[in-house]
Write a protein that binds this DNA or RNA. Structure first.
Lengths: 148, 148
DNA sequence: AACTGATTGTCAAGTAGTTAACATTAGTTT
DNA sequence: AAACTAATGTTAACTACTTGACAATCAGTT
């Protein structure tokens, strides 16, 4: 089997998935998919710092730093110093940010549930597991390369 | 099942896949994954124009236009006018570009074959089919929305 | 032949990411 | 305590994309 085919299929699927999410979020909550990810990631973290958030989002610390003011200016985010620590910043969603994150996540979840209902022939649980396994193999391969 | 989980897994897998490809291509052919896609897409097209290429790559015409000189300057690409047509440009890989595209594609194919051998428990053929089907459902959903 | 409408390629301006360098702070070692 | 070492957050410069506007060209209709 041509391995290029599956990598292309995966890229195409992810493109369609993210475009769909972006369109739904813009239309209903006036935020982009990438802004949604920012908010939802903050929501799911215990004591998020910019550096921690960067790692979760898979982007650089600089990228997070540049985006902080956007969320602060719109009163979605409260940035403060961790008490007894002058190095790390503490990021906390405001009530407004929390509501936006929760509602948009619930909305998107429901929309995708409806769409995926049309894919009843697929065992999503199992598919997720398979994809995770492939990911693990790739990461493992990378690490063994680095070690060598 | 939480549909967010599978979309995250897909995004993560694609990120790892593309990073792996990018690393391999940079190390062995001194090109990025995105440059590789540009070349390989040209290779597989009959009579590619910038506009056609943009559609294949899933980017804007402007994006392709801005990248053309990079490939031309390195003698990977010959840009000319279609005879009897003053509107469309004709893009043709040079011999050098063709060799680079072919060799890097073969190389990447083989590398991934080796990696995927460790995933023998997965029927890649079937997985590809499943993913394609899900993609179709998403696109179909989008089209029915647009029609409404 | 002239008009209309669509398509093409390019430019300008804006966005979101990158890496590299930096000052600052925290933690560890001596 | 002082001195390295490592981590954090910010900035500057760069890259690769976007959209919107534009002139040029092509194709179809009258």
């Amino acid at each position: 089997m041509n391995s290029r085919r599956i990598t292309f299929t995966l890229n195409e699927l992810v493109y369609v998935l993210n475009s769909t999410a972006d369109r739904l979020l813009r239309a209903n909550f006036d935020i982009t998919y990438s802004q949604f990810l920012f908010l939802v990631t903050l929501l799911s973290q215990k004591n998020p710092t910019p550096s921690h958030l960067a790692e979760c989002l898979g982007v650089s610390r600089a990228a997070v730093s540049q985006r902080l003011s956007w969320f602060q200016d719109r009163n979605f985010l409260k940035i403060s110093k961790v008490s007894g620590n002058d190095k790390n910043l503490s990021l906390k969603l405001t009530r407004k940010g929390e509501i936006l994150a929760t509602q948009s996540a619930d909305f998107l979840e429901e929309e995708f549930r409806i769409i995926f209902d049309h894919a009843a022939f697929v065992d999503l649980e199992k598919l997720d597991k398979t994809l995770s396994q492939i990911k693990s193999i790739l990461i493992q391969n990378q690490e063994s390369r680095n070690a060598a």
